[in-house]
Amino acid sequence: MLILSCPFCGERDESEFVCAGPARAPRMTLAAATDDAWVDYLTAPPNPKGVVRERWWHSHGCGEWLIVERDTLTHAIHATRGARHEHD
């Protein structure tokens, strides 16, 4: 069971959260993107044996969206922060 650190609620159990999958890079400008790059962006998130960036939603808590950096081999969590300023 993971323990995620919510910026408002502190350390909370994984069961309070919904994992919403990989956190993507900022959406690319369609006019500038090639077809291949666009398909890659849509369908092929990084799949490393190592650290992934994910979005988690504190649905049973404060409702904040988080960006979590988690290791796919160890489940170690390297960073957690609120997602609201992610692409500022």
């Binding site: 069961s15 081999l73 489940h75």
Partner: peptide, 13 residues
């Protein structure tokens, strides 16, 4: 299990 993982064990939850 939710989230990408290369583990071969089971998470308690």
């Amino acid at each position: 299990d939710v989230g990408q993982s290369f583990r071969q064990d089971i998470k308690q939850g």
